[in-house]
Amino acid sequence: MNNKQLKSWLICIDDTDDIGTKGTGEIAQEIAEILSGDEHERSSFITRHQLYVHPDIPYTSHNSAMCFYIETYKSLAMIEQLAIVHLLEESAPASDPGLAILACDSEFDREALIHFGLEAKGQVKTKKDAYDLALRLGVSLSEHGGTGQGVIGALAGIGLRLYGQDGRVKGQIDLGQELYEEGVELTVEEVLTRSGLDIVVDLSGQQLKSTEVIHLTKKVKAVYCQHQFALLVYRHEGRWCNALKRQLKEY
């Protein structure tokens, strides 16, 4: 009999890169694959959360954290070990990596985490703020080199993912649209089936019906919206089109 239980976690890393080195998103993707490689284990899309840019906050070319959800049989100790080994191997020498791990099945103060995440988008937070909150809420928070400043973004990223209305999905959604200069037309239902996304929403957050047709061109990206992975669309010349990057910037 298999006594192992599948458990849910949110994992977030921040400040792992430097100019010209592997990006934080790519490292997050690799950690997600390492942690969810066994049968029945799975990981979600990775979300990128923009944090505050301020002269007092050191960052590479942006200031963003990368967060993902996994279901895994692995224990917290095993998750920590595997994630840390990979962070140490792949983080840039000049970076200040932080790692946050939240057991989703545990009881925790959700609102406090969300509050911290939202504050970190608009004000300077300190490592002490992050460690104090993590300790109080039972979130695993650790630093792995440099100043360890990345713990702030890592914890904030967890809060922003819980908020459910923040972040762009890492990478692009390939629905064959780049094979044709004019793009492709798919129904909402086809988009969702082929992409693994949950919903299609317009710029005001209104969900589109499954029969609506979307005109997809060039780079298609998704966002995290209404606690779901969403394709953002806008109305242009009488049809629905995938959002432009400047429209995605709000996330």
């Binding site: 990128r48 070319s61 963003s64 762009r168 890492k170 432009l244 990057k245 995605l248």
Partner: peptide, 19 residues
């Protein structure tokens, strides 16, 4: 910069630059 960090639909744009 990394594609995830770009905010302009036209690639060659200072808003998309690593610098």
């Amino acid at each position: 910069d990394d594609e995830d960090e770009q905010i302009d639909d036209t690639l060659v744009s200072c808003y998309n630059c690593m610098n």
